[in-house]
Amino acid sequence: MTLLAGADLSRAWALSDRVSLREESFGALVYHHDTRRLVFLKSPTLVDLVRRLDGYDNALAAIDDVIEEAARPRYQRALRDLIDSGVLDGR
């Protein structure tokens, strides 16, 4: 747990080229080849969001487009976790 506010979601982020992603019925498995860590994307919506980040200069805008309002804070947290674990890299 970090005490900082967390990564800046108003920047451009995308799936790191150090990870492989495999879709599964629950969402997806992501494997980070450097840290050797396996990360679970626990919903197809999150997978969709992560894949679409590429088309945005601002991850918050991607969330606004893809996620309904009430769920946005949850997906902001999810993206920050993915940034912390190196699954997403800044572009």
């Binding site: 495999r22 599964e24 629950f26 626990k42």
Partner: peptide, 19 residues
């Protein structure tokens, strides 16, 4: 809750093995 539903998904099998 989320963890145990994920575990149930795993118990039902995946498209390819993890290990």
């Amino acid at each position: 809750g989320a963890e145990s539903s994920l575990r149930t998904r795993f118990e039902r099998g995946l498209g390819a093995p993890i290990c």
